[in-house]
Amino acid sequence: MKKREVLASVKDEKLIEMRRDQIIKGAVNLFKDKGFHRTTTREIAKSAGIGFGTLYHYIRQKEDVLYLVCDKLYDQVHSLLEQGIDTKQGTIESLKQAMKIYFKVIDEMQDEVLILYQETKSLSKDALPYVLDKEIAMTNMFKSIIDSCVKNGELNLSEKESELIAHNITVSGEMWSFRRWGLQKRFAIDEFVALQLNIFIKAVTNPNDF
């Protein structure tokens, strides 16, 4: 999974990271409200609190900003999951803990997740495969936990069942963002997490009931 390089004319890595964080935060609100195509780079610079000319020291084109938003989202989610879960523990409790962390992270980053679903199609042909690979890598973390549970005798699932459940977990978390127009009118985040855990754990431990 080769990372797409976003060129900058500035050499200071810390400054690049700081400015790009500003750019990402400024762009997220604009992309959410106006969409990627109707947002201008001038508006992104203004929202980020930097000069229009300065913006182009850190990116080369508007599509770079969308790529940075997507890349940042996956990096943060992946990092938080790695810190909070043990993929080799092989217990139902470890699977539940991973799902709790994941759903809460999605709640904190729901605007970025929404943009990911709405605007991924706008990524360039060289950027899209990388972003999609990051999504698969995140799903594979859940697949590893499920596989460990199967190996440990906690679950009885086929390879394809384990893979599909991992995808279901990933999408169910992201659903909190892209279907928030309906879900967040009916559920608080803690209730949503609790119900999702209950449904998934019943499904994987008592498959004959479904």
Rank of each mutant, 00 (worst) to 15 (best):
K151W: 03
H78I: 13
E43D: 13
K134L: 10
I101K: 09
A127G: 00
L157F: 01
I146G: 00
T170D: 05
K96N: 00
Q61F: 09
T40V: 08
I101W: 02
D111W: 01
T54E: 12
N152D: 05
Y56V: 09
G182K: 15
R38A: 09
Q61R: 10
T170P: 00
H57D: 00
F142I: 08
H167S: 05
N168H: 14
I50T: 09
N198H: 09
K100E: 13
L157A: 02
K14C: 03
F178E: 02
L95P: 00
E17Y: 05
K121Q: 08
A127V: 05
D126A: 15
K160L: 11
K3S: 10
E17I: 03
E163Q: 11
R4H: 08
N140M: 07
S9L: 12
K88G: 15
I23K: 06
R38M: 10
E5V: 15
G26W: 03
C149D: 03
N206W: 02
S162F: 07
E43F: 06
D71I: 11
F36Y: 13
L114F: 08
L197A: 03
G26N: 03
K46V: 14
A8N: 05
M175C: 07
L157N: 01
K104H: 11
V204N: 04
I23W: 03
E112R: 09
E154L: 02
D21G: 10
F187V: 04
I165M: 02
V204Q: 05
E63Q: 13
T91H: 04
H167Y: 07
L114C: 06
A203M: 07
F52R: 04
I23R: 05
L68M: 14
D71R: 15
V6F: 04
T170M: 08
D209Q: 14
I59S: 01
E159Y: 07
L15A: 09
L128Y: 11
G35M: 13
C149G: 02
H167I: 05
L81R: 08
R4V: 06
G53L: 09
E93F: 08
I44A: 09
L197Q: 07
A194Y: 12
